[in-house]
């Protein structure tokens, strides 16, 4: 929300606590991945292909995944309530609570993605493989419309997520994307200066993956 530690105005900390507790108690969070192999990377046109589907990922992402031997496609959601409660509170005039539901909803789904990523890392490490960062359509130059290609790998309503014609996921607090897997790929601290999206949600944020997220979460699967 922009505040440095301890600088948030007093009501905010209280509302964040209440909203976090509420969203966690709902148990709506889902996160799953599916691993596909083999992967073909074309360095001339910066594409990644698996199962006959070609992802036009553009240079920033391609440079990270070009040595991948497998790819994990993932979807995660905080569930429908984060977005719905945000809208409801905003409409009822409790603007602050509505906004906090929106922000915490994003945090919840990113945290779920962190845990899913850690579960994947541990799983492939047993085979002597590494993983890359996770990448999503709409970021790092990857066209958000490619979300349709990604969703073609999942059954309808997988994890309760549907995709609109404009490539918007519903529930709105959901993330999708892929992670490269291979013996020679690395997880690299991402440098935002590589990207020209000045309004990106993640700009300037530190990755939590390297901080060792909780790995006790279950429910992830490799199909």
């Amino acid at each position: 929300m922009g505040y440095s530690r301890g600088a948030a105005p007093e009501p905010l900390t209280e509302v964040i606590g209440e909203v976090s507790e509420d969203l966690i108690s709902l148990g709506d969070v889902r996160a799953e991945y599916i691993i596909f192999t083999p992967v073909k990377c074309n360095s001339f046109i910066k594409t990644v292909e698996t199962e006959g589907v070609v992802f036009n990922v553009k240079p920033i992402i391609f440079s990270q995944v070009k040595k991948a031997e497998e790819v994990a496609l993932f979807i995660c959601t905080a569930g429908p309530e984060a977005g719905e409660r945000s809208r409801r509170y905003m409409k009822e005039g409790d603007l602050l609570r509505g906004y906090v539901y929106d922000v915490i909803g994003s945090e919840v789904v990113e945290n779920a993605a962190d845990r899913m990523q850690e579960a994947l890392r541990a799983s492939v490490a047993a085979r002597g493989m590494n993983i890359t960062n996770r990448f999503s359509p709409g970021y790092c130059g990857w066209d958000v419309a490619e979300q349709h290609k990604l969703f073609s790998f999942f059954k309808d309503n997988y994890c309760g997520i549907t995709l609109t014609a404009s490539a918007l996921m519903n529930p709105i607090k959901s993330v999708s994307g892929f992670i490269g897997i291979g013996r020679e790929v690395i997880y690299a601290p991402y440098n935002c200066s590589m990207c020209d999206d000045k309004n990106c949600l993640y700009r300037g944020r530190k990755s939590t993956r390297s901080e060792g997220p909780d790995t006790s979460c279950t429910g992830f699967r490799s199909v």
Partner: peptide, 10 residues
């Protein structure tokens, strides 16, 4: 930041 803007709006 946004929260203070929302509190003012309220």
């Amino acid at each position: 930041f946004v929260p203070q803007m929302l509190m003012a709006a309220k």
